[in-house]
Design a binder for these strands. Structure first.
Lengths: 152, 152
DNA sequence: CTCTAACGGTTTAAATCTGAACTACATTCC
DNA sequence: GGAATGTAGTTCAGATTTAAACCGTTAGAG
């Protein structure tokens, strides 16, 4: 009795492919639009998370988790952002192993410049293309995905 | 009269972040699960597209467009797949500039091995987590995104 | 207290990806 | 026909990402 694979049905297949292609195109577009500010979407997200945090700073590991990135990748990226004077590193007093990544004024300022255009891009290329219900569904689905997969 | 930025409202914000994090986690998970077959999700998708094409082959540019990849990236990836004997390149007779990327028997065979586990992963970490309606919404949304952004 | 395991972060080297430059062929327009 | 322009694909150099090894520091067990 062969417990065969539960393949995707035709509609699921189509939706899955649409998601793959749509995501690829969307990310490429957003990346592209951010290039005028010298940022990629990954850099941008880092700056945003920092800007929202208390004292505009986060511990490296915390930041890595929020973005689901390896600590190694984050070290490299923050290194570049630091070289561009957008982020500053300071060591953590209470845990000497720790490092704070802190948004500089220049970083905050660049973020203020880039944000309107970026958000407009997210609207134009995603949010405004969907009905509110459909977009809410996207949120629910990927929230469930995150929840299911959990931390790395 | 300041035509201010149309920021995302709180729910849109949450949905957008859920999508970003969920996608990051999902892709990492699928990549991870494919590693046992020596493939990444990008390699896998290439093999799948080839396997579905007439004569199991596609022109490089065609394949690149379907995956929204640069020709350069595809050249590299196919080069590696060719080295692993999963894909074969042949030159196109009708257009001497062209190159066919063709799935080898080994490539097809590996795909047959990997597919059940991969599809199960897509189900477990995405499809089965959503109601059919919600998942259909995801399909609609990203189809609209693809349509809107168009070819590169 | 002290030993050991775990954590936080960086470094290193290799793998992969990007973008521009380049080669060859094809097409278009006099 | 032949020059200009466009297309397909590759190559090159540089940037980014990955995975593993590594170094302090911290925490937990005995």
């Amino acid at each position: 009795m062969t417990t065969g694979t539960r393949w995707l049905d035709s509609e699921q297949q189509v939706a899955w492919r649409a998601y793959l292609l749509g995501t690829a195109r969307l990310m490429a577009k957003l990346d592209d639009d951010l290039r005028q500010f010298g940022l990629g979407i990954n850099d941008y997200e880092i700056l945003v998370r920092l800007s929202e945090a208390p004292d505009r700073r986060l511990r490296m590991a915390d930041l890595a988790d929020r973005l689901h990135q390896s600590r190694s990748r984050l070290t490299h990226t923050v290194g570049r952002l630091e070289a561009a004077d957008l982020v500053r590193r300071t060591s953590c007093k209470s845990d000497k192993r720790g490092v704070w990544a802190e948004l500089t004024d220049a970083g905050f300022s660049l973020l203020e410049q880039a944000a309107p255009s970026h958000v407009e891009g997210v609207r134009e290329n995603l949010v405004d293309l969907a009905t509110p219900e459909d977009f809410a569904a996207v949120g629910r689905v990927f929230d469930a995905v995150s929840e299911h997969i959990g931390q790395r």
